[in-house]
């Protein structure tokens, strides 16, 4: 991987971040009526509104306001939660690890389920094994996350008592145990997405001329599968995982709500019902930045794994 490629990709992200800030900034200005009244909610006395307008610089031209906003963001100030009276950044930093844990856990479960089954489906393509795997995940793809969560919670949590019905726990072991059902919910959905695409990409590899050449070399199936097929499947998996990070964050919003997990997803929903606009704004911004960073990392990892990547 050439360092010039890395530098180019890093530079591309700066205008992207700026554009993200524009979107998030504009978003709040779509609040019908007077944003400050909306932000202040119950405390929107005339006096308060006027003071807030001045404090937030809302009496200035839009472009000046935006400059102010960017400046604040760059100094790590994402405003203060209206309801919790805590800086948004603090709030987020407290809860982000929970969501990251959930999403990583879900990705691991998803990959563990999807990769072997996708390879099996590809190897036995167009047989009943393949049809069964595809049918199961086809249905899996159509199952709403909140519904899966609710059913798992009721069945494995409440009824059978195998898993706790909420919370996050204290130790790492706790986390693994508490978060199993939420992670499984998200992981199943991820697996459904992965199986679909991976199966086809493995078939493409299996029927590639270079696999025939490898067979002509007299390599064992096992060697061909691990060196030639799995390697390509790995590349495809990494890319797919990276592209799906947005889905995982969205999924976390729903799953955390159903399982009452104190992550940023739950925070987002709470903020929406509490009309806590600074929190909504801050979270949207951070999520977008997070996704761009994951996209960047995916590109770089992909370039590492696939020597052809830099060409395109």
């Amino acid at each position: 991987m050439h360092s010039s490629y890395v530098i180019r990709r890093l530079l591309q992200i700066i205008p992207l971040f700026l554009a993200v800030m524009v979107v998030v900034f504009v978003l709040i200005h779509f609040i019908p009526g007077d944003p400050v009244s909306a932000i202040l909610g119950d405390r929107a006395t005339t006096e308060n509104v006027a003071r807030a307008n001045r404090e937030l610089g809302l009496d200035k031209p839009l472009i000046v306001q935006f400059g102010f906003f960017v400046n604040q963001v760059l100094h790590g100030n994402l405003g203060e939660s209206i309801n919790l009276k805590v800086p948004v950044l603090r709030l987020m930093l407290d809860r982000l690890p929970v969501t990251l844990f959930l999403d990583v856990y879900a990705s691991v479960l998803g990959v563990v389920m999807a990769v072997p089954l996708a390879i099996l489906a590809a190897v036995r393509r167009n047989t009943w094994v393949d049809s069964l795997i595809r049918a199961v995940f086809q249905v899996g793809l159509s199952l709403p996350g909140f519904y899966v969560a609710l059913q798992l919670l009721t069945l494995l949590g409440a009824r059978l008592g195998w898993f706790p019905i909420g919370g996050y726990g204290v130790t790492f072991g706790d986390h693994i145990y508490h978060m199993f059902l939420p992670a499984l919910t998200l992981g199943l959905n991820l697996a459904a997405i992965l199986v679909r695409t991976l199966r086809n990409s493995v078939i493409e590899v299996l029927t590639a001329e270079y696999v025939d050449f490898a067979r002509a070399k007299g390599l064992r199936s096992r060697v061909i599968m691990t060196r030639h097929v799995l390697r390509n499947a790995l590349i495809a998996t990494v890319t797919l995982l990276g592209l799906n990070v947005g889905g995982l964050i969205g999924g976390a919003v729903i799953t955390e709500t159903v399982f009452a997990i104190p992550g940023v997803g739950k925070l987002m929903i709470d903020a929406i019902f509490g009309r806590d606009y600074p929190v909504i704004q801050g979270l949207t911004l951070v999520f977008a930045v997070l996704v761009s960073l994951v996209f960047l990392a995916t590109d770089l990892i992909h370039a590492r794994l696939d020597p052809r990547a830099e060409l395109s």
């Binding site: 979107v23 779509f30 947005g246 889905g247 964050i249 969205g250 919003v253 979270l283 949207t284």
Partner: peptide, 13 residues
């Protein structure tokens, strides 16, 4: 780069 669901619920909010 905006998670689909997040952006939609933010707009809806």
């Amino acid at each position: 780069v905006f998670p689909f669901l997040v952006l939609v619920i933010a707009i809806v909010a």
